[in-house]
C-alpha cells in the first residue's frame, strides 16, 4: 500500500486532524477495529507528548508517516526537538494506590501494551517513534 505522510503543527487542538489522517489510512489498510483503537490511542499519546515537551522554546511540527506492507501497518511519529527517547521512561507502578500514582508514564505504557512492536531512533536531527500493528494477530491486552 502506498505510503502517506502529513506534517501538523504540534498543538493539542490539532489532534483531531492527526487522528483523521491515521484513521483514514488504517481503514484503507483494513486494520481490524480493536487494532485501530490501539493505533489511534498510541497516536494520541505520542502526539500529546510531543505537544507538551518537544518544543519548549516555541512552535514546531509533528511529522506522521503511514506505511502498509503485507500484514503490517507502520506509523512513524517524528519531531525536531532535542534528543529524547520516550521509551526510556519506566512503566508506571500499577500496584500503587491510584490516588497516589503519578499519571505521567501511562501514555507510553499504552503505546507499549497496545502495539505489536515499538522502537525509537534519532535520525537527521529528528526523534522518530516507530509503531507497528499487525492486521492478523490479536492483541492479548484488548
Amino acid at each position: 500500500m502506498k505510503n502517506d505522510m502529513k506534517c501538523i503543527a504540534a498543538k493539542i487542538e490539532n489532534l483531531n486532524g492527526a487522528n483523521d489522517f491515521v484513521e483514514e489510512y488504517a481503514d484503507l489498510f483494513g486494520l481490524p477495529a480493536k487494532k485501530k483503537f490501539g493505533l489511534l490511542l498510541a497516536l494520541e499519546e505520542a502526539f500529546v507528548n510531543i505537544c507538551g515537551y518537544a518544543y519548549p522554546d516555541g512552535e514546531g511540527e509533528v511529522e506522521l508517516s503511514c506505511a502498509g506492507n503485507d500484514d503490517v501497518l507502520t506509523l512513524e511519529i517524528a519531531d525536531r526537538g532535542k534528543p529524547f527517547d520516550v521509551l526510556s521512561l519506566p512503566d508506571p507502578d500499577l500496584t500503587l494506590d491510584i490516588m497516589d500514582r503519578p499519571i505521567g508514564g501511562l501514555g507510553i505504557y499504552f503505546i507499549r501494551t497496545l502495539s505489536d512492536s515499538v522502537s525509537y531512533r534519532r535520525e537527521n536531527e529528528r526523534n522518530i517513534l516507530r509503531i507497528e500493528f499487525k492486521r492478523s494477530q490479536e492483541n492479548p491486552a484488548l
Binding site: 489511534l40 490511542l41 494520541e44 499519546e45 500529546v48 490516588m99 499519571i103 501511562l106 499504552f110
Partner: peptide, 18 residues
Amino acid sequence: YISSAGLRGLLVTAKLLK
C-alpha cells in the same frame, strides 16, 4: 474512546469530589 488524558480528567475530578 478514552486515552490517558481522559483517565487523568476522571482522576482529577474524583479527587476534587472526594
